[in-house]
């Protein structure tokens, strides 16, 4: 029986990198009557299913996150394993 493991990779813009999408969402919230939300930063996440027999899973997740899922110039990532 094959077992799969799950991990979620969260990709965020680095601090200090302008997020026009987040700024626009924040302005929309203020217009909707929610002025208490002072800042919004947008990001994305990826749910990965991994072959449970694979070796070096942590390193591989780290590899694919830094090579493809995130652009290390402007983004940072964190990993949560289920």
């Amino acid at each position: 029986m094959s077992i799969t493991k799950k991990a979620t990779v969260f990709v965020r813009l680095k601090d200090g990198v302008l997020d026009p999408q987040g700024v626009t969402i924040q302005k929309a919230l203020a217009q909707m009557g929610y002025p208490d939300f002072l800042s919004v930063r947008s990001g994305k996440f990826f749910e990965l299913e991994i072959d449970g027999n694979a070796s070096d899973i942590d390193r591989k997740i780290n590899d694919v996150s830094s090579k493809l899922l995130a652009n290390p110039i402007v983004e940072k990532f964190t990993v949560e394993k289920a």
Partner: peptide, 17 residues
């Protein structure tokens, strides 16, 4: 080319979206 690391920097969403 920026993604490939052949040129520095990154091209982000236009500031006006």
């Amino acid at each position: 080319l920026t993604e490939a690391g052949l040129l520095p920097g990154a091209l982000m969403r236009n500031s006006h979206l």
